[in-house]
Each structure stands twice: as structure tokens, then as C-alpha cells.
Amino acid sequence: MAEKKQRPSIIWGVRTAARMWALVVVVWLVGMAFFVPASVVLQRAAVEAFGHVPEGFDLPVGDGAILMMGLLRDVADTLLVGLVLAVVLSWSWTVLWHAGVARVSVWDPESSSGVSRILGLGLGAWWRYCRLSLVALVALLALLAAIWFPLTLGIKTAFEAMAEDRMVLLIGIGVVLSPMAKFLVWGATLRGAWELARPDARSPVMAWLRGLIGVFRQPFSTFGTLLVLGIGQALFALVPLVAPIYVPALRGTPVGSGVAAAATLAASFLLVALFAAFAPISGVVFRSGDDDEA
């Protein structure tokens, strides 16, 4: 029996991601691959900087930082280019698989969810989804400006009036509102991506605006999904950086690499699940008891 759900669903997202496990792996691998050139540059410079330090030698106070600075200074330009390129490619790749997943789910739900099928469909809609993304970026910047411009004036006035309590309060308001703005745009963008997947949708701007309206209509399910899956994937993405701080045995060791790989794979899974969780708003039909059909 078909049951039409038109609100984001965490369970739907997780099940879809599980079904699209191949895509999850590709998202994971490709996401890492973009940073390989920058990593290689850094590792080679690191060998130059640190590779000559005797094994087990206690560096004098300050030498570690100086060697690190020298390393970064030598490769700064190349590294910057590599990182910018990686970010641009990450963005472009995300747009691609978002478009593909949306298209295959709405346009061709009966087909297999093979990676090549998904990416093929995504390529066809890539430019339209790029425009959606740029709308989202403009909206995010505009929202942040709308928050911080008046706050900055208020902070400046408070500072000149020596009203520190008011100044700190205003800064606190900005610190709280900024991630809320980010979440608002994120929710609107995810919803907008599925709106854009509808066969009758043409305009990325209108799709994003419909997405934004949807956020206000379904705030709890939207933000709840973002909190669980969005924050969840960010936390998993942080594990490779944070865990070795507290567990030195994870630093640069095979075990550490294994933990990092598992954590980033989990993050990729949740990332795919997050996007897929918004599928129901596009009218994708969920057949209860039947996990394989939309």
C-alpha cells in the first residue's frame, strides 16, 4: 500500500543511502581524492623539513613550530592553489551527485541505483544544480550580511559608550544567529534540490525559494533532519582530527589511518543519507514495507 510522505525522513534517507552504498563509497573516495595533490605537496615538504630530524630527538623549544613554518612557507603558493582547487572540485562534485541522486529518484525510480546511472543523470542536470547552489551561496552571504551589518554598528556604538555588557551581548547574538542562518540556507538548498528534480521545475531560483518556504512550513522535520544527519556527518568528519589529540597512538599510525577511514566513510554515508532524506518532499512515494521501491 502506497503511503505518500512529503516531509523529510531520516529513516528514508538512511535506507536510501544503504541502498546506494556504492555511491557512498564513491563519494568517500572521490572526496578524499581531491585533497591528494595538496597532501602530496605537504608530505614532500614535510620530509624536507622534518625528515632530517634524528629519530627520537627532542626538538628544542620552538624548533617544531619554526620547522613547520618553514615548510608551509616553502609550499604556501602551491598548497593554496591545491586547496582552492580541491574546494572547487568538492563543491562541483557534490552538486553532481546531488543532481544525480535527485534525478534518478524522481525521474527513474524503478531503475537500478548504479553509480554510473546516477552520475550520468547528474551530468545532464549539473549546470542547473550549479545555479541552485549559487543562489544558495548568495542567499547565505546576504543573510549573514543582514545579521552582522546592524550588529557591527551596534557593537561599535556599545564600545564607544563603554557598554561592554551590551557589546558582548550583541556579539553573542551574532554568534548564535550565524549558524542558524547557515542551517536555514542549508535546509532550503536541500529542499530546493528536490524541488528542482520535479519534472515541471525549471528555475533554480524558484526551486530554492520553494525550498525556503518548505523550511518554514516544516521547520521541525527540516531542522531535525539537519541536526541528526548534518551534524552527525560533521562530527564523524572531525574524528580524524580530534581523536589523535587525545589518543597519541592514532597519530600517523596504521590504526589511526583505519580509524580515520572508518570515520570519513561514516561521514560520507550520513552525507548521502542527509540528501536522500529530503527526497519525500518531491513527491517520491514510499511504499511501506517495501524498502526497494520509491
Binding site: L42, A46, A86, S90
Partner: peptide
């Protein structure tokens, strides 16, 4: 050893993508 000192770098770079 050099790689060990830069254990944080790959993870930090990937976080930029967030």
C-alpha cells in the same frame, strides 16, 4: 617520521570541504 608529525594535515584539509 615526517608524515607522523603532519598526522593532522589530511584531516584538516578535508574539513575545509565542510
Amino acid at each position: 617520521a615526517a608524515t607522523h608529525r603532519l598526522w593532522w594535515a589530511p584531516a584538516a584539509m578535508r574539513l575545509i570541504a565542510l
